[in-house]
Design a binder for these strands. Structure first.
Length: 267
DNA sequence: CCCGGAACCTGAAGGC
DNA sequence: TGCCTTCAGGTTCCGG
């Protein structure tokens, strides 16, 4: 599932193909993928636009244009693929560039979303601090945790609390910080908060270095897999021994999501 | 504001 | 073999 490291990888690998190019043709096999404006206006207004640069806020990819910006969220199964060799049955939008290249927005479950916006805050305005933004510090995290009754895992998944962390990396960060996923935000000590902050940064940076995690459908723009999943300690590893103490990793359901943790290390 | 649950989606996997 | 249920989880919406 694309979380911050996956979107960052896609941004980095797509940029050389996109920056300085313009969109010569946009087609929408699934117009429902466009959230704003209407799919017809989206197509018309995007055609001919020049790409100035790529950015990211949380899990949102932001393609800055000479006017306006194209914002893409991949949700669960979305991918942006360069020149797919086979016809893609899950193509929801196809962007042809002025050099003949094609970028296909492929999304099996149709949960992904596209916007054309004048100001990014129309789309990402309610996000919390980006997990890799220098403005996000241990002090900021501690302040945001204070007084919160919700389980810390639920807070990490709330993009209004912190933008970029999803289910996999929340589990990895909580394991690295030795914090049980059900601990309430307000019950975390200053030491817990400091360890959690460092764990979040380390886990995300390591995953970016490994070009993201291909747990299920994630592919990089060239079709390659990421390798971050090979370094996972607990995420999706129910029943396997904890790398620290060999206790079997447990799974619990939190908000309809699988949460993996070590019942001995994480208290 | 805070919290938890359902809905949106489709394909894979498992039970019987 | 085939039908049915469950699971996968990022986000938004809604009710308490």
């Amino acid at each position: 599932m694309p979380e911050l490291p996956e979107v960052e990888t896609i941004k980095n690998e797509l940029a050389p193909h996109l920056v300085g190019r313009s969109f010569s043709q946009v087609s929408l096999p699934y117009p429902g993928a466009v959230k704003r404006p209407s799919s017809e206006d989206f197509r018309r207004q995007l055609t001919g636009r020049l790409v100035a640069g790529l950015g990211r806020r949380g899990k949102y990819l932001i393609i800055n244009l000479d006017k306006d910006m194209l914002i893409i969220h991949l949700r669960m199964t979305g991918a942006l693929l360069l020149r797919p060799s086979q016809p893609d049955p899950w193509a929801r939008a196809v962007f042809r560039l002025d050099d003949g290249a094609e970028i296909v927005f492929s999304d099996r479950r149709k949960l992904g979303a596209l916007w054309l916006a004048e100001d990014e805050n129309e789309v990402v305005g309610k996000l919390g601090p980006d997990a890799l933004d220098p403005a996000f510090t241990a002090r900021v995290l501690a302040r945001r945790l204070s007084g919160r009754e919700a389980p810390v895992k639920a807070l990490l998944l709330d993009q209004g609390f912190l933008a970029g962390v999803g289910n996999m990396y929340a589990d990895e960060a909580l394991w690295a910080a030795r914090i049980h996923p059900l601990r309430k935000g307000k019950e975390l000590s200053p030491g817990d908060g400091e360890r959690l902050f460092r764990a979040i940064r380390l886990v995300l940076r390591t995953a970016i270095g490994n070009k993201g995690a291909s747990i299920s459908t994630y592919r990089r723009p060239g079709g390659e897999l990421g390798s971050a999943q090979n370094g996972f300690k607990v995420a999706h590893l129910g029943g396997r021994p904890c790398p620290e103490c060999a206790t079997p990793i447990q799974r619990l359901a939190l908000r309809n999501r699988g949460s993996y943790f070590c019942p001995r290390c994480q208290v």
